[in-house]
Amino acid sequence: MCTWLSQRVEAHGAARGVPDWMKITAINVMYDHPVSAPYDHALLLDFIDPSQGVGARVGIELSATSARELVRAIEAALSSPEATSDLQQQAHI
């Protein structure tokens, strides 16, 4: 199945990336002072692989509004009929 279902949400924040694909084994989630995004507090997401050192990190800092929009879009993507049907067949994911 190839769903081609995509959504774009407006976002305000900052990101710190890596040059190529990396494996991730954990996600840290905080609501605290951001480093770069121009807010007093923000939703901080770090996609990491601690076994590869502290630089194995994709860091995202989102405004609270953007973070809520992202959650809504993720929920919508996972609850689409195609995804619901597919997930019933792939319970391990």
Binding site: R16, M30, D32, D46, P50, G53, V54, G55, R57, G59
Partner: peptide
């Protein structure tokens, strides 16, 4: 002591 690395990555590991 959480490093080595870029200060922001070192800080992120520490804060977590």
């Amino acid at each position: 002591r959480r490093g080595p690395g870029h200060w922001a990555d070192v800080a992120a590991a520490g804060r977590a």
